[in-house]
Design a protein around this nucleic acid. Structure first.
Lengths: 157, 157
DNA sequence: CAATCATGGATATCGTAGATCCATAATAGT
DNA sequence: ACTATTATGGATCTACGATATCCATGATTG
């Protein structure tokens, strides 16, 4: 079980955007340079966040990405599921109903206990991530970090 | 983020072994037929469980696999981590210290807030799975299931 | 009009999961 | 002692998704 490396990229990108003044945007190239990651691939991942409604994008000069809503109302889960998809890592294929030991359908009225256990764990994981907003993340940073982020990502008029 | 399909296989295999009398064993071939999964690959996965100390194996005729300890003391987490490895799906590569926006080391005394959040969620996931034992799983099954499992997997003298 | 920027499609590379085969070693039953 | 059964380890092969790049298109600012 592995989260894509791009998950870390977009989390840091979203956190960086949360440190800018609300209307400010940052382009793919800026963000890629800021974190030292490949720009073309990062662009693809950021597009996923836009389609998921986490980020808003604008084209043209001085265009780029900004948060689609206040940082208080964007959770870490929103970002992670936008880039990784919201599917449960455990997919129950009803193994109990296959092979020689297949249980007849009438004994399978209850959902598979293993799948239910895995599902409950995934729900706990999601709840844990949903409890932290981007504003919470920014709030934990020492003051010098947002200062430098704004200095480096704000663009001259 | 995806768990290997073999994770479901070994979970069901472990649950099936938990339904047998403690000393009884089932071979790779029996388990593979019982669930309709490819035997050679299943054998590799069961070997992982043995190395992790979840299952015990014995060679020779009437040999095979059995639980390494009572079902009450084997958790779903034990099985999942034996087959998938115990590594956190989110790996922090200290992105905050890379690229043009790299934070100097003296501002990174605190662990990365994003990594800490992801870590806490993984801990919640693990705790949820560690709270359920194989005995709990078997306990939820309707009585006909363990009956058939024993009938199909017990071998003639 | 020109420069900037996101978007979508097509493509190439790489690592891991899925799947198989074989040689080896160990053990139970005869 | 012999034979059949079974796990173990190594070597391969294939399929697929993550990583990474490029280009054509369209939108927007100045």
């Amino acid at each position: 079980m592995k989260l894509p490396e791009s998950c870390e990229w977009v989390l840091h990108c979203a956190a960086a955007l949360a440190q800018l003044p609300p209307a400010d945007t940052a382009s793919t190239g800026q963000l890629a340079e800021h974190f030292g990651v490949p720009a073309p691939y990062l662009a693809k991942q950021l597009a996923h966040l836009v389609r998921a409604g986490v980020l808003a994008a604008s084209t043209g000069p001085r265009g780029g990405f900004r948060l689609a809503r206040p940082a208080e109302r964007i959770t870490v889960l929103d970002v992670v599921e936008a880039v990784d998809g919201g599917t449960d890592p455990y997919q129950c294929r009803e193994l109990r109903q296959q092979g020689r030991g297949a249980a007849p359908a009438e004994e399978c009225t209850e959902p598979c206990a293993l799948a239910a256990t895995m599902r409950a764990a995934h729900d706990a994981w999601r709840a844990s991530l949903a409890a932290v907003s981007l504003a919470d993340i920014v709030g934990t940073l020492p003051a010098e970090i947002p200062e430098r982020t704004r200095r480096l990502l704000s663009r001259p008029r």
